[in-house]
């Protein structure tokens, strides 16, 4: 049977993709960010840690979805997803290869579980999906695993509640565990952490909020999932609302998790960046040698 073996969180900001593309990932500004991802990159290459499939939770940034169609939760069931042209040409990264059998299985299971998913059989994927792949897998010719993109609307209000996201994660876990093929599946929650990209309040960062969010995500996600949108907006900035997507990842890991790695860094362009490796109870993968880097 398929199983969830780990949850990873990652930033997905386009500037990280640009740093790779322009060869500036070693400079004074980006160097510490890429150094913070190194333990994740090493860990995910270890035997047993490379997933067969990643369910990649992200938000589309007005690329696949314009103002005409705004699905709250969508799931990519296609064979292949092309990098989107977001105004500077498509990112020069491999196509994202899907896992239609598992994706359709999850879609059907979720709908029966009362999550009314939008099924995408044709969809370009933007930086929200491809930047985490680059940050964690580097620059391979082909991505080392299949990917099921799961876009969440956090752009047009209201986005789904934290609670809804957490419950969706729980249902994703049940769906994966009822898939008959032996597959190691990771769920990635991307975006965040505190940031605001608009208006006179742009540049907002809230380290205390972010570090508390990480703690509670690990230890008491049930309580965290009850936090209303307005708290995210007031405390973590208007785009900090992306953090609800981390609750989908967390819901998919079950009650107890082990924290294998934590990276937190300020600033990455306009944002505070958080990257975690979490493992459901009973999986037993070894953590990276370095367990924590907090540069803030």
């Amino acid at each position: 049977m398929a199983r969830i073996t780990a949850g990873i969180t990652s930033s997905h900001i386009p500037a990280l993709g640009a740093a790779i593309q322009t060869g500036t990932s070693n400079n004074d500004y980006w160097g510490p960010v890429f150094k913070g991802y190194e333990p994740i990159r090493e860990w995910v290459k270890e035997p047993g840690n490379t997933p067969d499939v990643v369910i990649l939770v992200y938000n589309d940034h007005a690329s696949a979805f314009d103002m005409n169609i705004i699905p709250t939760f969508a799931i990519g069931c296609a064979e292949v997803f092309k990098p989107a042209d977001e105004g500077w040409g498509p990112r020069p990264v491999p196509d994202v290869i899907g896992h239609p059998d598992l994706a359709w299985h999850i879609a059907q299971s979720l709908i029966l579980d009362e999550f009314d998913m939008t099924i995408m059989n044709q969809m370009d994927v933007d930086h929200g999906c491809t930047v985490p792949l680059s940050m964690i897998f580097g620059e391979p010719e082909v991505w080392p695993c299949k990917v099921i993109p799961l876009p969440v609307n956090v752009v047009t209000y209201p986005p789904p509640s934290g609670n809804r996201c957490f419950r969706l994660g729980e249902s994703i876990r049940a769906a994966v565990e009822s898939f008959p093929e032996d597959l190691d599946v990771q769920v990635w929650g991307t975006g965040g952490m505190s940031h605001q990209l608009q208006g006179p309040r742009a540049g907002l960062i809230n380290k205390d909020f972010d570090l508390n969010f990480i703690e509670q995500l690990i230890k008491d996600p049930e309580t965290l999932s009850k936090m209303p949108h307005i708290e995210y907006l007031r405390e973590a900035g208007s785009e900090g609302i992306e953090l609800v997507m981390w609750l989908i990842m967390r819901g998919a890991l079950g009650d107890k998790v082990e924290e294998l790695y934590r990276f937190y860094h300020i600033p990455a362009s306009n944002t505070a960046l958080g990257a975690l490796i979490l493992q459901p109870e009973g999986i037993g993968a070894k953590p990276p040698k370095v367990r924590e880097q907090v540069n803030a």
Partner: peptide, 25 residues
């Protein structure tokens, strides 16, 4: 919306930091 407008500043070869900063005075 900033994510839609990002297509405009990307067309200008400008970054999110440029656009966000321009709104703060």
């Amino acid at each position: 919306n900033i994510y839609f407008l990002s297509k405009l500043f990307s067309t200008d070869k400008k970054s999110f930091q440029f656009a966000a900063g321009s709104m703060t005075g």
